[in-house]
Simulated scan of single mutants.
Amino acid sequence: MTKADLVKIISENTGIIRKDVAVVVDALLYAIKDSMAKGNHIEIRGFGTFKLKTRKPRVGRNPKTDQKVPVPARTVPTFKFSREFKNAVVNVKTK
Rank of each mutant, 00 (worst) to 15 (best):
R58D: 03
I32V: 15
K64Y: 07
K53N: 13
P72F: 02
S35R: 09
L6G: 11
G39Y: 03
V21A: 11
G15W: 06
L52T: 06
V92W: 09
I32Q: 05
T54A: 07
D34S: 11
S35L: 06
R61D: 09
V89L: 14
V24L: 11
A37I: 05
A27Y: 08
T14H: 05
A31P: 00
N62I: 03
E12C: 11
I16V: 10
T65F: 04
A88K: 15
V92H: 10
V7A: 06
F85E: 04
L28F: 15
K68T: 14
K80I: 12
D26T: 00
E12M: 14
I10A: 03
A88S: 15
V92Y: 10
E43P: 12
V69M: 09
V23P: 00
T65W: 05
T14E: 10
L52V: 08
D34I: 01
R45Y: 02
L29N: 10
P63F: 06
R74W: 03
K8M: 06
P63M: 06
A73N: 01
T49S: 08
K19N: 15
K38H: 11
S11T: 11
I32W: 08
G39M: 02
I10K: 08
F79V: 01
K68E: 13
V89F: 12
L52Q: 05
V7Q: 04
I32L: 10
I16K: 12
F79A: 12
G39L: 03
K53W: 07
G60L: 05
K64H: 14
N87A: 15
Q67A: 13
V89W: 12
F85D: 04
R18V: 08
N87G: 13
E43I: 07
V92Q: 10
T54H: 07
Y30P: 02
F81M: 14
V92C: 09
P63D: 03
V76Y: 04
N40Q: 13
V25H: 01
D26H: 01
I16S: 12
N13F: 05
Y30A: 15
R74D: 02
L29I: 11
S35Y: 05
I9T: 14
N13G: 14
K51V: 08
K8N: 09
A73S: 12
F81D: 13
I17R: 14
F85R: 04
V92S: 07
T75P: 05
H41I: 06
I16F: 15
A22V: 05
F81A: 15
D26G: 00
I9H: 14
R55Q: 04
F50S: 05
N62Q: 01
K33S: 14
S35Q: 11
V7F: 04
K19H: 14
V76N: 03
K64W: 07
D26L: 00
P72K: 11
F79C: 12
T65A: 04
S82P: 07
K53A: 14
P57G: 01
P70V: 00
I42E: 02
A22L: 05
V92M: 13
K38L: 10
F47A: 00
L6V: 06
D5F: 05
I44P: 03
Y30I: 05
L52A: 09
D26P: 01
K56A: 13
G60M: 06
P72D: 01
D5E: 15
K8F: 08
H41Q: 11
E84V: 15
